[in-house]
Nucleic acid binder design. Sequence first.
DNA 1: TTTTGAGTTGTTCGA
DNA 2: GTCGAACAACTCAAA
Length: 453
Amino acid sequence: MTSILWLRRDLRRADHPALAAAHSDGDVLPVFVLDPAIYDSAGAVRQAWLARSLRALHDSYDGRLCLRHGKPEQVIPELAKEVGATAVHVSTETEPDGALRDKRVRAALADHQIAWVETGSPYAVTPGRVRNAQGHPYRVFTPFSRAWREHGWRGPSVEPKRLSFATAESDDTAWATLDDAATADGLPDLPEPGERAAMQRWHDFLDDGLAHYAADRDRPDRDGTSRLSPYLKFGVVHPRTLLADLVGRSAKGADRYGTELAWREFYADVLHHNPDSLWHDLRGDLGAIAYDDDPDLIEAWRQGRTGYPFVDAGLRQLLAMGWMHNRVRMVTASFLAKDLHVWWPAGAKHFLNHLIDGDLASNNHGWQWVAGTGTDAAPYFRVFNPVTQGQKFDPDGSYVRRWVPELRHLDGADAHEPWQQPDGYAHDYPQRIVDHAEQRREALDRLAAAKAG
DNA sequence: TTTTGAGTTGTTCGA
DNA sequence: GTCGAACAACTCAAA
């Protein structure tokens, strides 16, 4: 018997339940489908990262990965017929578009009496499984995370020792497309692709980073995070693998890291139950908030030319690295939503376009949290101050100086307030495009007005 | 069923 | 400089 292992957000070989399931069916044909509907919507950085990750995946599957280009609902059934596969194995996809796509593929396969088998998902607990006592999904993080931990998860899946592969020709033009993307001009330095690099990074982090994680994770001027998000994005490493390694480590850092993984699972769960919340307010009942749409201000924000050093540093880091520190994601998002009064999807799209780790659920629900339209009925008055956030989390200004060369002549925390320095604008750093205190009041007024209206 | 208390990530003001 | 209170009202989990 031959079965197809259709890989999507599970580009690995280790700890892979769907692979184990396919293996137990007989010969395995590992396949990736380059679907223009998804691929074309990714920015150059994530395309390059996907391309390099797929090359690494091809290697880890002994050069047996079959790459095809096209619509999965056509490609997968055709390929199944071509190789005489009797089943298609996948990890469950829970993101809205992917879930719909799978429904179409599944229907097409059913027409040919080919089985569709879902085993595992990109999450330790598949979205939809964690429920409260009434059987309802959670919409508040803390109770979710408690229930999520209590629910527990399987141990890592044992990798089949000797895989027996089926083979099929790859689409050479698809590989060419990927190779072009992988080597495109102007790409930032990207992480080393592949499972081995991911695990190397993880073990380095366990050895050197975990002990200080709880404190350092909020410091963009330090290398305090695991930087595994690009690998988690495509399932090069599975969170279950990481959680298993954290067991028995009593340090605060281990607990905290587990909590951060729980956030990823929480937002996936929320999105699973509310697919429309991907691009629309989760809480549509808040009343109509008045938004602005000034293209010049939005473009200044995109380019990191707002005149607020911490904000600009983050936005420039995003363009330069394809990555931004989490703390700064919140601050820059707050600036767009609260200081420029722009509806969050514009910012979420910009992030997704440039982030190497751009994850739909985490990104868009993170934005909704900042905008106040998402989960967490948090106080409406939570508006980040871009200056004090910088002073607090980048106390000697080194993060700002790294990404904003116009401010490198300013010492220490002076870099956060060039307007306080006689030579603050000596190197053409832009003036502030809005007054934060004024716009904070404006944002609060608009929320109050929306409520009253 | 009703009630109670908590809710990632903040800021400002005044003592 | 430090610290606590105030900043809405609401949702939701749990007792």
